[in-house]
Computed example of a mutant assay.
Amino acid sequence: MEGTMAAEGQNGGDDGMMRIGKRCYVSNLAWKTSWQDLKDKFRECGQVVYANVTRGDDGRSKGWGIVEFETPDEAIAAVNTLNGTDLGGRRIAVREDREDRDVKQFVEGEEGAAAAPRARSTRGRGRGRGRGPRAPIEGEPSGFQVCVQGIPWKYTWKELKELLAECGEVERADVMTAPDGRSKGWGTARFTTKEAANAAIEQFHGSSLEGRTLTVFLDKKA
């Protein structure tokens, strides 16, 4: 059926179906909606392993959030069944989280810090409908997100978040992976304050972690 989501790797031909990972982007949230409200709502579709409502410097909700499921099929179910439904008196919009699959281009945050690999657009290549790098959200503040290179291969976003939480509250963490699911050895972390992001750079840049040297710098594109 047109508009139905398919899991990445399934129905890869030109059948008009979109691909999706394990994460959903949820917008038009009521200002009072918390991450727990979001998690409770999306439990209808499967095992929620991560839920977050993005907030500004003043602690107020920005009206959007992220939900990650245990499997892509659960994320598909959420997009197909919860998009347009009510949560907190507002009709929410649910779609695939493009940042879950795309790698944005990063720039050097300080002298001597190597830039992360440039994302290549897969638009028009292969059998699926690829997407290029996600454009930064207009008006989104800079200085809150860092890029971390040299992450141990076994690290997931959870380990990265726990590591950097020593410097302050981490709003979101991601470890970039290849199509086969293996880590690319780098990721991003978004803090709730610029001070925490700078503290992470000061504390972890050049440090050793499980035999690898970390490179940490501000993501000026976020």
Results as ranks from 00 to 15, higher is better:
V170F: 01
D40F: 13
A75T: 01
A78G: 08
R129G: 09
A30N: 13
M5Q: 05
D14I: 09
G124K: 03
P72W: 01
G139Q: 02
D15P: 06
Q145A: 14
D40K: 13
K194H: 06
T71C: 11
R98M: 15
Q47D: 15
T122I: 09
W153I: 08
V175D: 01
A75D: 02
E74T: 04
N198K: 13
A200L: 11
G185I: 12
Y50G: 00
E166G: 04
K22L: 03
R23H: 14
S208K: 06
N11I: 07
W64S: 10
A77E: 14
C45V: 00
G88C: 03
A7W: 03
L38Y: 02
N198E: 13
K194Y: 06
Q105I: 14
T188R: 14
V53N: 08
D100S: 09
F106Y: 15
G206D: 00
W153G: 08
A196Y: 09
Q145G: 02
L87W: 08
E110H: 15
A222Q: 12
T54W: 05
A6Y: 08
K220N: 13
V146T: 00
R127A: 14
A93I: 15
R127S: 10
V53A: 07
D15M: 08
D97V: 01
P141R: 05
W64E: 05
A165F: 10
L82S: 00
S183G: 07
G13S: 10
L38F: 02
Y50P: 00
V146A: 12
R90I: 03
V216W: 05
L209S: 07
G112F: 07
D73A: 15
M176L: 15
R172V: 15
N80L: 03
T193C: 11
Q149N: 09
G56E: 09
K39M: 05
V48Y: 05
G16T: 02
A222N: 12
I76E: 01
L163E: 12
A189C: 04
S121C: 07
T193H: 10
V148M: 00
E70I: 01
V48F: 01
G185F: 08
N11H: 13
P72R: 01
K194S: 06
G88R: 03
R127G: 09
N52F: 07
T188E: 11
G185K: 01
E70N: 12
A113E: 07
E8H: 12
D100G: 04
V49D: 03
P133C: 04
G181F: 02
G168V: 02
E138I: 09
S61A: 08
G9Y: 00
A196R: 06
D180L: 03
E202C: 07
T4S: 14
W64C: 14
S121M: 04
T215W: 09
